[in-house]
Amino acid sequence: MRVPFWTIPVLIVVISLAGLGFSYMISFPSITVTFYGDDQTIPETKKIINLIIDGVTCVDTALKASSTVEDVDGVLKFTAYASHRRVEIEYDPSRTTPEKICNAIEGPVFDQDSGEILFNVFRVLRINETPYHNMNGVTFTRNN
């Protein structure tokens, strides 16, 4: 059957938009790190912050970023979506604050034996306490 030539760009646009829409609906993390043991209970008052972090570009850098909050008391879970530079952190608000978490991310990580700075590369670009899909309208940019 003969079809008009504009069928090609129309197909491309429709399928691309369908693909992008589908990718927006699904979301798989690059890494998930939990900082509580099986015997510990997660507080019901736990909160989640979403951060856009400059420096989180892949699984490797996401793992490095997770190590910056490893020692922050009250951080429960670190989930990174490296392709969006997005990090979701679950924390216990009675033990820590978003400010402390951001300071830890932006601060240096030291070698436990030598005390030397291992890396100091991350910068928090945006902070949001709303779910990810509402993040387009940025509500709060942190002042350093």
Binding site: L11, S16, G19, F22, S23, I26, F28
Partner: peptide, 25 residues
């Protein structure tokens, strides 16, 4: 159950979409 490096769900969805597009056009 983990993406490679900086790739994500968008790459995967676009690749699946591309396969459909290729079978059609």
């Amino acid at each position: 159950q983990q993406f490679t490096c900086a790739t994500g769900e968008r790459n995967l969805a676009l690749f699946v979409g591309l396969l459909f597009l290729t079978v059609l056009s």
